[in-house]
């Protein structure tokens, strides 16, 4: 062995442990993606394939789940079906084969739109307000600062659903039940404590000399905030936005309690997708697959900010 082979760096992992780490990560990634793969596969199966036992790993893909997810259908007699003009579209044809006709769109698209509006809306406000509040907490001498921060944190010390009844009653009085605005306010309020604390940590890490340098150079505090603090807090803002979106997007209990029609989000709706003779598994899987997409896409879009933060360290302390 040469001396170079024997020399060990304490920061660089040895090739063996590096390979071991890679192996562990790959195995873990595979195991955790099995349920996801299962859902996505099920969404492309026919109802019979979906409940076949043993499970079919190889099957003919079908879009029936997606068609069923987006349409309302009724079962008809063969005579009535025969009397109809031939189907005009591929999805009508698919439905006819099951002795059904499409009576209109399902409510899924509306629920999905609600989820998007409420999820991204509340994330936007939680991050916007959180950034300003965190900046103020980080930079200014605020009276009772410690107490205020503790109060903000304390709102997360019990499960939010513990206050569901008072919130329900308040919302009824205010006319906010089953409105998008009401849900945006609720999720913003719940997420705000997380976003203030997370972002304060990130902003505390940015030396105040940065914006002070800009202020001495003739910029106002707000300009310095926008041009100097925000770009450097991008990592924190991206991470916080992802956390907020995940909470708001997945929230089930409040959505079930406070929304029923107009403003209902996708999570309480998906389990209600019931087809002929029980749950329509491909449709549920299709709903779940579509439901997973926005958070995934959002995270991938913000990924470069998350990674950039790690390679930032340009300041000598």
């Amino acid at each position: 062995m040469s001396a170079r082979d024997q020399a060990r760096s304490i920061v660089e992992p040895a090739p063996f442990s590096r390979r071991l780490a890679a192996l562990v990560i790959v195995v873990y990634a595979l195991v955790s993606s099995i349920p996801l793969a299962w859902i996505v596969a099920t969404s492309f199966k026919t109802p019979n394939d979906a409940i076949a036992y043993p499970p079919k790993l190889v099957f003919t893909p079908s879009l029936e789940g997606y068609v069923n997810l987006f349409t309302a259908r009724t079962r008809q007699t063969p005579e009535y079906l025969a009397s109809l003009p031939p189907p005009e579209t591929w999805y009508e044809e698919l439905v006819r084969k099951r002795n059904m006709v499409i009576t209109g769109p399902s409510r899924f698209a509306g629920r999905y739109a609600n989820s998007l509006i409420i999820g991204f809306g509340s994330t936007f406000f939680a991050v916007l307000l959180g950034t300003f509040a965190a900046y103020a907490f980080s930079r200014f001498g605020i009276p009772l600062k410690e107490d205020l921060l503790f109060f903000i944190l304390s709102t997360r010390m019990f499960p939010p659903i513990a206050v569901a009844i008072p919130i329900y009653l308040m919302y009824r009085q205010l006319g906010l039940t089953d409105t998008q605005l009401g849900m945006i306010i609720l999720y913003t309020a719940v997420n705000l404590s997380l976003s203030v604390w997370l972002l304060k940590g990130f902003i505390d890490e940015i030396p105040k000399e940065y914006e002070e340098a800009a202020m001495v150079d003739g910029y106002s505090r707000l300009q310095a905030f926008r041009k100097v603090v925000l770009p450097q807090a991008a990592t924190g803002i991206a991470a916080t936005a992802i956390f907020c979106l995940i909470f708001a997007w997945n929230e089930y209990a409040f959505a079930l309690l406070l929304t029923s029609g107009l403003a209902q989000t996708a999570p309480p709706f998906i389990p209600n997708i019931i087809g002929e003779g029980g749950l329509d598994w491909p449709a549920v899987a299709a709903g779940t697959t579509l439901f997973l997409l926005p958070v995934m896409i959002f995270t991938i879009l913000l990924r470069k900010h998350l990674l950039r933060g790690i390679t930032f360290g340009a300041l000598r302390r």
Partner: peptide, 12 residues
């Protein structure tokens, strides 16, 4: 003009 102890240069 102020030259800071930490030379506050903008890394971005």
């Amino acid at each position: 003009a102020f030259v800071f102890q930490l030379f506050a240069l903008y890394p971005h």
